[in-house]
Design a protein around this nucleic acid. Structure first.
Lengths: 340, 340
DNA sequence: ATGAAAGCGCTAACAT
DNA sequence: ATGTTAGCGCTTTCAT
């Protein structure tokens, strides 16, 4: 915005009309004679006029911008979700402000605050932990907000959500292993205190209970570190041994990255997957199809999740009523799981 | 920006001062008595005042926003680059507008145009093909622009760049295979007419020439499809057979995704990597370390590339002079390549 | 040290 | 059908 740019005033002068006439012509206001309208449009083009969206926003009280916060941009799961968001936002004329929180509450609050100052029209939050502080802050912004795979007890009007059914996913994953004849089944989770980790674990426990299979505290390995710098792959690698000592024959992993970590650890230890150990992941990121063996996983439609969330936001912006969505993950059976 | 929000005018009224006093106090103008300043700041906080960045931008002619265009958000390479960008931009107080081009010229032009209307302070373009139209458009915006891994002949002042040395990478990759004793070495490229594909190929040819090794047109397989919907993995899978018929023993692949595709095809065909065929990738995306065998690849510091580009943009915004950067990729020797 | 007033570029209500 | 004017929320001269 450095140098002075062409404004409607400049066009008005050259056309010998008032700036409001130019404004009207450019916006196809019906009151303008089509002749002048075309002339002005022509002129605007010649002069390389580019409307100043900032000035428009100030006047219209609408920025046509939405804010998106994700845990990490480079995480393949969020990357896909953002791609899905952008695919819907762009054709609708909305620009996307992107910010990463790195699971750091302060950074996330700061990001949302920046969205507030920039007067975004709506906010999309994809982070598994939503705190009281968030809800308070978001409530204050009073802008349509859609939560993605995150939850809050707060049922206030401004919160909407699209989420995957983690409990169902955990249940399906575990049932899959049960159907293959496994009875000593472990859960390999992460230590980020996220809701999704908790619910996938619950699904796992539910499945075991319903099948009247034994449960064992040693079969549940949850990293006690909650460090953003430690990737989920590393967590999977480190925690695997714990479950091996507990002699499980099948493991449901929190997500694909953790499962990949477990798989790498197996390769190092010479444990054959799926012959000696079955592994099931969660998410269905592209990567899960490329490792050897390809991961059996509970697939989430990531692009769609982003798209649905964005569409929901669009509807909210048009003041339509929307309904929260809970999507079901589905089992993608591949090479990493097999019968005992 | 729907409802009316607290403005400095509201604060002024409550404080019994003029709105300019409030503005000054909030911006720590030296002329304000520290007493009033504190009072006003206090009051602003109580009233939950959040400055309107739009109004500020209109006045200051600075939006503190930068625009970033990438080919695809979900592509792990670009995802990392964007992460690197955001990491530098956020602490500098700049927000990131993100847009994907999907290798579609029209979409990319539209994205940049949207940045123009929104009066971003700077632009980052990470897309391997920069057309004449781009340069024309970007020149017109007249805003600092840094090109990432893309090139233009245009040496105008507003273009700056950080790029990886693709030719060197191609050369190193091929030399690595040569040093392992391979003499029939193929190149598996993509059909997107990108500069990087071209230059990696040149590096490959250079290495062969310098080693006085035979070159063979059949050893170069470049997909003639240029379809965004077809992933690089698929390209690798499809094109592998062509090189196998040509009886190469080592292949340098355009990037890791292509190499993964080739690897998957090998697995399907029962070809052992690296025993029967050596594979070398490019990029060093996380995935390359997770497949079996892990890919030997030419690693690019993706986070750093994004960070450097962003830092360069920051410098440009402060009107410092900057120098274009060409980074060197380095060989990451792993399991997918071995001696004959 | 503070207030009044202008102006950033636009839209829209109000004239005519 | 077009011009005049006000105003969106802020920063910044220019007065005092």
């Amino acid at each position: 915005m450095n140098k002075r740019r062409i404004s409607i005033e400049d066009i008005a002068q050259r056309a010998g009309v008032s700036h409001s006439t130019v404004s009207r012509a450019l916006r196809d206001n019906a009151l303008i004679s089509s002749k002048v309208r075309e002339e002005i449009k022509q002129l605007a083009q010649e002069m390389n006029y580019v409307p100043n969206a900032i000035a428009q926003s100030l006047q219209n009280k609408r920025t046509n911008t939405i804010g998106v916060v994700v845990t990490s941009i480079a995480d393949p799961f969020f990357a896909e979700v953002v791609e899905g968001i952008e695919k819907i936002a762009r054709p609708a004329g909305l620009s996307v402000l992107l910010s990463a929180s790195h699971r750091n509450l302060q950074q996330e609050i700061a990001a949302i605050n920046s969205f507030h100052r920039r007067r975004v029209d709506g906010i999309l939050v994809a982070d598994s932990r939503i705190s009281k502080e968030h809800t308070k802050q978001l409530t204050q912004i009073a802008v349509p907000t859609v939560l993605i795979n995150s939850q809050t007890e707060d049922q206030s009007e401004i919160f909407h959500s699209v989420a995957i059914d983690d409990r169902l996913g955990g249940k399906l994953a575990t049932e899959h292993l049960i159907s293959l004849g496994h009875t000593a089944i472990g859960y390999l989770g992460v230590g980020d205190r996220s809701r999704s980790n908790q619910q996938r674990l619950e699904g796992y426990q539910m499945a075991l209970a319903e099948a009247s299979l034994p449960q064992n505290a040693d079969w549940i390995a949850i990293s006690d570190e909650d460090d953003t710098r430690i990737s989920n792959v590393t967590t999977g690698q480190k925690m695997l041994s714990k479950l091996l000592t507990a002699e499980v024959t099948g493991i449901f992993c929190y997500n694909d990255m953790v499962a990949v970590g477990a798989l790498l650890a197996c390769q190092k230890l010479g444990i054959l997957v799926p012959r000696s150990l079955s592994l099931v992941g969660f998410d269905g990121i592209a990567l899960s199809g490329y490792v050897t063996p390809a991961l059996t996983t509970l697939s989430q439609p990531m692009l769609e999740i982003g798209g649905i969330a964005m569409q929901m936001l669009l509807d909210l912006l048009e003041e339509k009523t929307v309904e929260n969505r809970v999507l079901s993950p589905f089992l993608l059976q591949r090479g990493s799981s097999a019968a005992l």
